[in-house]
Design a protein around this nucleic acid. Structure first.
Lengths: 206, 206
DNA sequence: AGATTGAACGGTTTGTTGATTATTCAGAAA
DNA sequence: TTTCTGAATAATCAACAAACCGTTCAATCT
């Protein structure tokens, strides 16, 4: 069924164009169908519904992002702290720029996470896998030694939840958000307890 | 102007009754005025508007909560970790129960934080003062030694943001939230770095 | 047969109108 | 004069109708 996959891809491409020009809500199935030179009804042989097309677009997009993050998680020549830092900053910057420069994409993200809460969970699960890779690698190098890595990854995500949801940012600029994330990472790495206070931590440059 | 303050208090009491019985939206200024045996117009000599009455109620309520938390922050016979734990759990439980058992109060909270974002900031600032007290006390006892306590308190709040906003809970039960908060606190206290791994941490009992 | 259409269905959104209500203020009461 | 009233105002809300659009499916085409 390579032909069917081609058509699915064509539909996704057409929808992507429409969604990013006019927004998800203002794009009709009839328009997407016309762009693909087919009838509206025929779309439903390839996707169960409009939201599923949006989900396909979002899945493709986030998968690319995940691939990038997977590389950051195991970059050689950087210690675990730096890799965790790079990973979480990448996620923050991506979200911030989507919000700022791409309101259409942000609209789609809102719709999907409202209508398909499972999708947001999938994103968290995938990112968590990468965090676990990072922790595994860190253990191999003797940097961190968390007992339960699955649980630890979940807690790192919980502690950085603020940086995933623009609704919680209340007009904070990116530099301020980065300064906060930097602080949270420092706390997560070193903790409040003094023990053997580790060497200095670099400050964010903004 | 003791008389004026009495009337202000009477208005708040009348509004509190109405709001908690019928909700904020379904309560009219005319009704509150009638309850206070005055005309609607006269209310405006005491409060600038309906929202300000709601804010007065919320301020009074949260101030009581703050007082309670202030006690938790300096309870003798508990170490800093336990006090931080008690403080953050108290906040979480309060929010959870407002949401579960008191939809009227939750409605008011939503309206206020939408129309008066400054109020949410005030709450955070006040809670932060308490966190700083806790850190000061911890330093005195040689438990934690954060360099910049104002900043550290801010970061503790950032890391526990998830537990303040029911919108982020997506159907999580209180026990699951408590388990997560427990994990985040552990991470905040001990950090990911091994250094001198501290003694075991208790598990939540639910 | 399998693939495709497009009109029909039903749910949602949009636009409109009328009522409700927060807020104001000219004047009455004290 | 100062305090208060309540009708007037303007903004918001609720209800209803019309239009729109996602989705389905009987009919048509290949």
């Amino acid at each position: 069924m390579a032909e069917k996959d081609n058509i699915r891809e064509q539909i996704v491409q057409a929808a992507k164009k429409r969604f990013s020009h006019f927004g998800y809500a203002k794009t009709t199935m009839a328009e997407v169908a016309t762009d693909c030179a087919m009838s509206p009804g025929n779309l439903y042989r390839f996707y169960p519904g409009k939201l599923d097309i949006a989900e396909a677009i979002a899945t493709e997009d986030y998968s690319k992002h995940l691939e990038h993050m997977r590389k950051l998680a195991v970059t050689p020549g950087k210690d675990a702290r730096q890799r965790l830092h790079d990973l979480l900053f990448e996620e923050l910057r991506r979200t911030y720029h989507k919000l700022e420069k791409d309101p259409r994409a942000y609209e789609m993200a809102l719709v999907i996470s409202r209508e398909r809460p499972e999708f947001a969970n999938w994103m968290l699960r995938e990112e968590r896998k990468i965090l676990i890779e990072l922790l595994d690698e860190a253990e191999r190098r003797g940097e961190f030694t968390p007992e339960d890595k699955e649980f630890t990854a979940e807690m790192v995500q919980a502690a950085t939840m603020k940086f995933r949801y623009p609704q919680l940012w209340s007009k904070l600029t990116l530099p301020k958000l980065e300064r906060e994330l930097e602080g949270v990472i420092q706390l997560l790495i070193n903790g409040l307890c003094p023990k053997a206070r580790a060497g200095h931590q670099r400050e964010v440059a903004a």
